[in-house]
Amino acid sequence: MSLLWRTDGQAGRVVPPSGFTAHLLVFAAAAMAFLAVFALALSLASGRLAARWGDELAQSATIRIVAPLEQRDAQTEAALRILQTTAGVAFARALDTEEQQALLAPWFGPELDIENLPVPQLIEVIEEDTGFDAAGLRLRLAAEVPGAVLDDHTQWRAPLVEAADRLRLLGGISIVLLAVTMAAVVTLAANAALAANAQVIKVLRLVGATDQFIAQAFVRRFTGRALAGALGGTLLGMVAVLLLPPASDAGGFLTGLGFQGLEWALPLLIPLLAAVVAFGATGWSAKRVLGELA
């Protein structure tokens, strides 16, 4: 490792410049890093989405009172009394007419007169951190408030959170696949360079160079190229993410693809990862080829 960081650059110069191949490797590293930035953005956005959906829906529940108009108020009162004595319920209240009207407005318009319609009465339930026993509450409601239906949002929340988690996983897998592809590209390039420089290796061995010295000369070269390419690709990817439309409720998930706050530092790890991958891939390749050329 020490030779890699030598400042005099003597060791690195023993490997001849390889022009076109070098440019291809830099380009490949840049492209991988560019894609990795987007995979990272996708993964982080999915994580945020899963957390938001989970947080927003996990701490609340709704009770619907589906009863004839003349029984609705009585059943609502009964349900609220039960909720007051239910462990894990922090707060419960019946939505007023305006609030219920606002909820239905997107479908029926703001002029809907719900006072005279058999619209269920909704009760908002806010849970304590410990949550409540949904099954027990259902049993009590069934016994005392026949028109009450408890919806603890599980059926909505679970698939949404699962979908977001899957997206996050896909983002992570993409980054791993990009790293593996990067390793494969660097290995191929290093193999080709080592084979093409068999004469250089022969000369270096003649003058007393150890395998470690020769390997490090190539490792240094390829790690530098991968680092440079990945740095360029990462910066371009970050600019592209920066230029995406800002997050908005109207845009939903698609406009939330980006980094927030300290997350902007994470893509800078991509060039380092690329350098580590190139370092390992070239080192492994050099060891193998030098063994074959012995």
Binding site: L3, D8, Q10, A11, R13, V14, P16, P17, Q199, V200, K202, V203, L204, L206, V207, G208, A209, T210, F213
Partner: peptide, 25 residues
């Protein structure tokens, strides 16, 4: 002879020093 064609003569002469991790300077 076996030289590295991309290095100058003086650099080629210094190769054993570099390979043994001694600074040519």
């Amino acid at each position: 002879c076996q030289f590295l064609d991309h290095l100058t003569l003086s650099e080629n002469l210094a190769l054993p020093l570099i390979a043994s991790d001694r600074a040519a300077e």
